[in-house]
Amino acid sequence: MKKTSLINKFEELEKEFHEISNSIIQPHIVSNQKKYKIFLKKYRRLEKVVNIYDKYKKKLIALQEANYILKNDSDPEMKEIAFLEKNQILEDLSDIEKKSEDILFSTSHTEIENIEDDHRNAIVELRSGTGGDEACLFVEDILRMYIMYFKQVGWKYKIIHAQKGGIQGYKEIILDVSGKGGKEGVYGILKFESGVHRVQRIPKTESQGRVHTSAITVAVLPEIKDIELKINLSDIKKDTFRSSGSGGQHVNKTESAVRLTHIPTKITVECQEERSQHKNFEKAMNVLRSRIYQNEKEKRFKERSIKRKSLVSTGDRSVKIRTYNYPKGRITDHRIHKSIYDLVGFMNGNIQEMINLLKLYEKK
């Protein structure tokens, strides 16, 4: 990390520290235990950074003083002392800079590697992949499977955005899922579902009775609150348009649908399920925060070459994780090489056995 970018990062976090210092004593924060704990956690992390930055600034001032003596003092003894002191200061600065890279990576405003996500609610995104109309139908089937599972475990869900397929099914559907799963939240249980889900079956439109292979993508993202990840509104481009889904006369009369584009990352989110533009904006922001968080998380892992012992919960959406083979009535998870021969039950929401096996595999 270059010195200028290091100082810029320090200054950015120092500014955030002072903002949190002022916020944490406000009555509306102190009275809300959940918010207060989040702010206190961030305050303590940032306090460490600010203390390191204070030491760093003092060393830089001392370096300037040593350089001044070397350049302007005529006393050889003073120059020798300044020379030795300068070498020591440069060593100290180098040590601080090396240590700071790790600290700054883990104390960015998203706090990527320090926040435990398993307790969170989740944003679940389903998208059709290869296979055309058949893939859209399979999105609908997997959506039904998850909804049946949500009912079994007592979770609630809301549709944030839905885009219908050409004939039937969905090209894309996004859900906000909330609830408890014992010690874990929704994300801690559903995170294993992220990846490519492949289906092998005879499509309804296939007259020759041939088995086709189609695929969809599932992405499970941890839900991030606005107090945890601040997004500058100046970084967002907002477009409004008329809803294309159901809604009667309302669809044709008002531009309540919202499209948000985060300019720095080019991440785009649409929401059109609510009649109110304001509510659609709030829902879209919720998804946008989760996507930015996940995007930053994946980027940090790549930058630091962090390799997990398995692919179970990396959330890599390009990895083929599971095949649903209808002719053989079999579901196979390729990460743990496990097959379950109860396709009907599985598609009716009985997925807990597979989730439990994935959890056990991840802990090995």
Rank of each mutant, 00 (worst) to 15 (best):
C136E: 04
M78T: 11
I160E: 06
G166E: 14
Y170V: 00
Q168D: 05
I112T: 15
T110C: 12
D95K: 15
Y146E: 04
G131M: 06
L137H: 00
T110F: 02
T130K: 14
S106N: 15
Q163H: 14
I167C: 08
Q163F: 12
N72S: 13
R144L: 00
V153G: 06
K156P: 01
G129Y: 04
I81M: 15
E113F: 11
G129S: 08
E101A: 11
G154P: 07
H119S: 13
L137R: 03
K156E: 05
F150C: 14
I173H: 01
I147Y: 08
K164G: 09
Y149M: 01
E172S: 14
H119G: 14
D92L: 00
I89H: 13
S94A: 14
V139R: 01
G169V: 01
D73S: 15
Q88D: 12
F105L: 06
H109S: 11
A122E: 11
L84W: 08
A82Q: 04
G169K: 04
I147L: 15
S74V: 08
G181T: 07
K79T: 02
G169Q: 03
L143V: 00
I115H: 06
K171E: 05
E111C: 03
I81P: 09
K156Q: 10
C136N: 14
G129R: 07
K171A: 07
K79Y: 02
S100P: 05
F83P: 02
D95L: 09
L143R: 09
W155D: 03
N87T: 06
S108Y: 05
I160Y: 06
N72Q: 14
K79P: 01
G129L: 02
E101F: 10
K180R: 10
E134F: 05
M78K: 15
E77D: 06
S100L: 04
I112E: 10
K151C: 02
T110R: 07
L90G: 12
